[in-house]
Every structure is written in structure tokens, then in C-alpha cells.
Nucleic acid binder design. Structure first.
Lengths: 228, 228
DNA sequence: CGGTTCTTTGAGGACCATCAATACGCGTGG
DNA sequence: CCACGCGTATTGATGGTCCTCAAAGAACCG
């Protein structure tokens, strides 16, 4: 059974509703690849030959221009990436590197487009995923343009707080320099920003974040349904 | 013939390949509305009941947070907007206002989702449009994060130069304060930035842009296929 | 344990926002 | 036709934010 290797993704929203036949077609020629940490899997400007799915590990999407680099997103288990470029058979706009040892499932772009045309449920799932990513990017841009770096950091801390089960104390999931890049600031500035949040109820020590006054932090961050 | 009013959009990529029957279903209950200039048609946070298409005039997408506002995009004839929110039946992440007197076609979101499920060609066109908008937003974000405001302005001037048929002299299509907001800067700063571009081959007078040294401008702007 | 990378802290400067005042453009009504 | 009012655009002064550079401390890894 060639699809046995891909059972782990069968339950993902993107694949859950499609027929068995479609899933077989989709995964024909697909494969799983192991990458060591800090390996660039995809470079911007290349053709998107495969839809990628993070099976385990952690991947960073980033972009470069003129000797500058910025982190766009960090992806964990079960995230897909390069979907838009895959569907349109275009060049990747972003690069991708592993942050840890990672297993990546790679599905030929042709298969995705073929099954999209024949399986309405899969088509619907693709549109859902595309819309979700698109809207996430718009939120990201609003965050960048409407907030100061300190406000972005405060809201980031709140968002992680929720993601980690509303714990008041938790570990940052990424290196600070990558977080800085994601938030559109330098590592030096991020370090100072953490200190400036102390009066707003945040104490940082290494990777450890402790929210000492949630009300004060929320007051300052003003999290918003339409951004966060 | 109820669809007669909508013939103007029948040829758009989004609708060109669908069956006549699908087009009828889609436009059933759709209507055209005239708006005066500077009218907010859609506010962020509302449910996306209609897919919007600019038939004539000009629309600005913008967002607000905490007494701040930012311009996200300016749309002209034949542009669609609110597509992602329409497909997922979610809240709008952006507001929209007319910049000029405009005619807007409004198609009930239900119709869009219904026809999406039954007409594969329409489904494909939807995904194309979604991908295009998504990728445009990613480019936008790269532009914001990887370039200084002066570089963004230089590249904007080059892009308009191309859009207006490679003319070395042309009129800005939007007010400067909106351009400033789109580029993530203040009007005052934009004004100064225009002056700083003089050594790089740009002379500005009112709405008039004149590129006096294209080579120098390109040298400075370093336009990039994966951003612009 | 030594080397590398990441993080923090400080000093200096570039960039950008804000405030204020003036000039410009445009449409309205006198 | 001109005067006026309104919104926009420009210019200058100032202050804050953020980046750069440099160096020291901390964490990580072979």
C-alpha cells in the first residue's frame, strides 16, 4: 500500500473530505524526506514543484532582498506551505528552511492540480486553506502597519499565552533573533522591548516568559479579533 | 434578461470560463450600486455577505486600529474584493471606501459558494484569483519589511511608470496622503522622500512625476521580480 | 573545555513621527 | 472675477524610536 506512509496527513482538513481514489492519485509520486536542522529546502524564485507539508519538526518561511532577510512565518506539524505557488504553477515568493530536524511530505504540484479539478471536496478544502493563509497574511500586515514594535511584541506574548493553554508562564517557541525578524525589528531592539514590557506585566528570563499582570498586559496590547 | 446588467464582467478571468447556467445562478440576486466619492461601503468586522466587483470608479481598502488607519490597496475597474471572506463566510478584515464616484457589482456570497461547488471552471478561477491576491499581499509584506521607505517609494514610482505604458512622465493615480499610508509612512515624510529621490532621477511637481534618469532610479530601487 | 552562536547592554546616529506654520489647489458663493 | 474656506501639501523644528556598531555575557555544542 503506497499510501500507508501518508496516513498521518489523511485526517488533516485539507485531505479529510476527499475520496480514497483522489487521495491515492494525490499521493502517487509523493514522498517523505528527512531534513537536518537549518537546511534550506526551498529558495524563492524556484518553481513550486511540490506542495510541502510539515509532518514533524519545524520550518521557517523567510525572504531576502539586497542582503537583508526577514522571517515571514514559523510552521509546525501539519502545516502546509507553498500552496499558492503550487496551484498557479508559479515561482516561490519565499524560501523555507528547517529550524529543527524535520520530516516533510512532498506532493507533486501536478497531482494537486489534477485532483483539484476532479474532486470537489478537495477543491473546497484547497480554497479553505488558501483563504486561511491569505487572511493570516493580511492580519500580519495590519499588525505591522498599525502597531508599534512594542505593541506587536505585547500581542505576540498574549497570542503565545493562548496557544500554550492560557499558561501565565511558558517558553518561547523560537529563537529571539527570529522572533525579532518576524516582528520586524532587530534582536537588540527586541531585547530592550522585553524590558519595556516589565511595567506592563511581563518578566522575561532567557526563553522563559512570565506574565505577572495579565490585565495590564491586555490593557497595553489591546488585542483585536481582526488582527490576532 | 436579468444578466444583461452583468455582461460587463462576463469576460473577466473570474467569470469567463464558467457555463451560462452557472453565470445565471451566480448573478441571481446580484445588483449594481452607485456610490458617491468617499463613502465607506464595507467596514471591517462585518460579515461578508457579498462579493464586490468594481465596475467603474475606484476603491480603497484600508484598516484601522486604535485610532490609526492604514491604506492596504487601491482597486480600479474589474477588481474584485472581499473574496476570501466571502468564500469562508467570515468577517471582513478590511474596510472599503470609494475614492471617486463608483459603480459596484455585488454578488451574494451564497451564490459564489454554491456555484463554486458545481462549476469546476469557476472553482479554478476562484483559486486563481485567491492565489493572485494572496501572492500580491506577500509581495506587499516583503516590500514593507525588506525595504526602507525611500526604496519603497522608488519602486512604487517605477511600477507606476510601467503601468502607465513606460512613460517617463505621468500623473500619480492617488492622493499623496493615501500613497504615504500605503507605503507605510506619513505625508510629511513622503514629501521629503520625493526630494531625496531627486539625485536618483525623479522630479516631482504636484501630481506630476517625471523620471529624469531611469538608469539611476533603477540602480537605486533595485526592483525585483519576486517583490514588484 | 573551547569555540561558536545567541543575547544583552551601551553609545551614537539615522530615520521617522509629531507638531506647527505656511503655501498651494480647488470649489463655492459673493 | 475675486474672496473665502477647506482640505492637502510642504517645510522646519524637535523628540522619540529604531538601527548600527561594538563589546561583554550567556547558552549551546562538539
Amino acid at each position: 500500500m503506497t499510501t500507508a506512509r501518508f496516513e498521518s496527513i489523511r485526517g488533516l482538513p485539507l485531505f479529510a473530505e476527499m475520496t480514497e481514489e483522489s487521495f491515492d492519485t494525490l499521493t502517487r509520486g509523493a514522498f517523505v524526506q528527512n531534513f537536518p536542522p537549518n537546511m534550506v529546502m526551498i529558495s524563492e524564485g524556484e518553481v513550486a514543484d511540490f506542495l510541502h507539508i510539515v509532518q514533524s519538526g519545524c520550518v521557517e518561511l523567510f525572504s531576502t532582498w539586497s542582503n537583508r532577510e526577514t522571517s515571514v512565518a514559523t510552521l509546525y506539524e501539519n502545516s502546509t506551505f507553498i500552496l499558492a505557488a503550487t496551484m498557479k504553477n508559479r515561482l516561490n515568493l519565499m524560501s523555507a528552511r528547517t529550524l529543527q530536524k524535520s520530516r516533510i511530505i512532498m506532493i507533486p504540484s501536478e497531482n494537486v492540480r489534477e485532483v483539484f479539478a476532479t474532486d470537489p471536496n478537495f477543491a473546497l478544502a484547497i480554497v479553505d486553506e488558501l483563504s486561511r493563509c491569505y487572511r493570516a497574511t493580511i492580519r500580519n500586515m495590519k499588525n505591522l502597519k498599525l502597531r508599534t514594535s512594542l505593541e506587536r511584541l505585547a500581542n505576540y506574548i498574549l497570542k503565545q499565552h493562548h496557544r500554550q493553554g492560557d499558561l501565565l508562564e511558558y517558553q518561547l517557541p523560537v529563537e529571539k533573533r527570529r522572533l525579532a525578524s518576524y516582528l520586524g525589528m532587530t534582536p537588540e531592539n527586541l531585547s530592550r522591548a522585553f524590558n519595556k514590557l516589565k511595567p506592563h506585566g511581563v518578566v522575561v528570563s532567557g526563553q522563559n516568559i512570565c506574565i505577572t499582570d495579565l490585565t495590564a498586559l491586555v490593557d497595553f496590547a489591546k488585542p483585536d479579533l481582526l488582527i490576532d
